[in-house]
Amino acid sequence: MHELSIAVSLIEAAVEAAANEAGTVRTVHLRLGALSGVIAEALESAYQLARVGTPLERAELMIQPVPVVVRCRGCRTERELPMLDALWCPACGAAEEVVQGRELEIAALELET
């Protein structure tokens, strides 16, 4: 259950990003990769607790899931995977590396003025 410390970091990062902007944060848009090691539902629950008493007390969290994408080290073909398994290129058989899916980033803030 590391989602609580992730939620605290998330709020700190969002508050910092909002410091230069006018208005009140209404929604935090988060990009969450399937390989981030973070479970969306657990993070949502943790966020509800962590936001109390912060400037984000009334801000909602919108989580946008980011699927896993791997790229072949040989022919550079990319493909999307439901989960991390059998990382060999179907086209040429070479090993594949993860190029997308580790995201744990605030994409945008919705502010109200």
């Binding site: 990062a13 990003a17 209404r26 988060l30 744990l104 980033e105 502010l111």
Partner: peptide, 18 residues
């Protein structure tokens, strides 16, 4: 009147740790 706007930030949540 209330207006809302969206600001793109692209900020790593674990930036401090990183």
């Amino acid at each position: 009147m209330v207006t809302t706007r969206i600001v793109e930030v692209r900020r790593q949540v674990l930036k401090q740790n990183d």
